[in-house]
Design a protein around this nucleic acid. Structure first.
Ligand SMILES: [Mn+2]
Ligand SMILES: [Mn+2]
Ligand SMILES: [Zn+2]
Ligand SMILES: [Zn+2]
Lengths: 138, 138
DNA sequence: TCCTACACTAGACAGAGTCTAAGTCAAGAT
DNA sequence: ATCTTGACTTAGACTCTGTCTAGTGTAGGA
């Protein structure tokens, strides 16, 4: 994630302890944390970090395209550092586990122009739901 | 929508004025109202209806499969009476308009088993985003 | 080392949804 | 037609998620 910190410095961001910690918390694969989960993990390293700063930093990371916002459950949004490789999500309906899955072709192509009603379609979001191996056996 | 009321009676529901009005408000095509929008329209006909009853009724309609919950914007959930024909949504990123679109094949088939990680996948939700004709010209 | 614009904090506020306790009424029973 | 009763409705408190503001702190250039 230190390459992320480099990119942020390149954009003129001040590298504060708070931003560093948020970036560290978001490091890894299949990371889809809510803002409050990010705050809890960040606060474990930097106890005085505020919720507002976590929300601000996440919002900034989203607006520059370093992090993606995912709404899989209509409750809290989740923040996904896997922003540089297009992907979709596979969600367990029972335990909420989220896995990244990678499309074979371009899912946008699956909408024929006869079904576009004059819209200029530029994005598509796909969420698959089912039971994960753990929840299926239980 | 009176066939819906018949089906509800068949399930042993008491047919109250409140439930009748909620069902009437949800009648139509491309209807994707938030709970508070449903409440406002219902209250125009039945002023004393409470928010709790609207939430209760919508939740019941969802749990018996007569209405679908749609979360297109990470804000309020929307309630969609078009529950008997599988479809997806096309959303304008500027004005929020939502149109129903109908898939050509089964979108579930687009996830190869090598990308299912042992999940039993049973549903897929697809949201296309772009600009509607009005917003594209403006 | 100093300066200051940018960043951070605590807490108030707002929107969406849930829950509870008390009152009401639809519809089956008499 | 009236009674009875458990399902239904209500108001409002409460929770969760997210936004905003006023005051304080500090990163990093001069
Ligand atoms: Mn992801
Ligand atoms: Mn729809
Ligand atoms: Zn699971
Ligand atoms: Zn539009």
């Amino acid at each position: 994630m230190s390459d992320l910190l480099q990119r942020l410095r390149g954009r003129g961001w001040r590298l504060t302890a708070q931003r560093r910690v948020v970036a560290e918390v978001l490091d890894g694969d299949h990371v889809h944390l809510t803002a409050d989960e990010v705050h809890a993990r960040a606060a474990a390293r930097l106890p005085e970090i505020s919720r507002a700063t976590v929300y601000n930093t996440l919002g900034e990371l989203v607006s520059i395209g370093e992090v993606i916002e995912v709404s899989t459950d209509g409750r809290a949004k989740r923040y996904d550092p896997n922003a540089h490789r297009p992907h979709q999500h596979l969600v367990c309906s029972r335990c909420g586990t989220i896995r990244d899955v990678h499309p074979s072709g371009d899912p946008l192509a699956h909408l024929p122009s006869s079904e576009r009603f004059g819209f200029t379609v530029s994005e598509v979001e796909v969420t698959y739901r089912g039971l994960c191996p753990n929840c299926a056996t239980a």
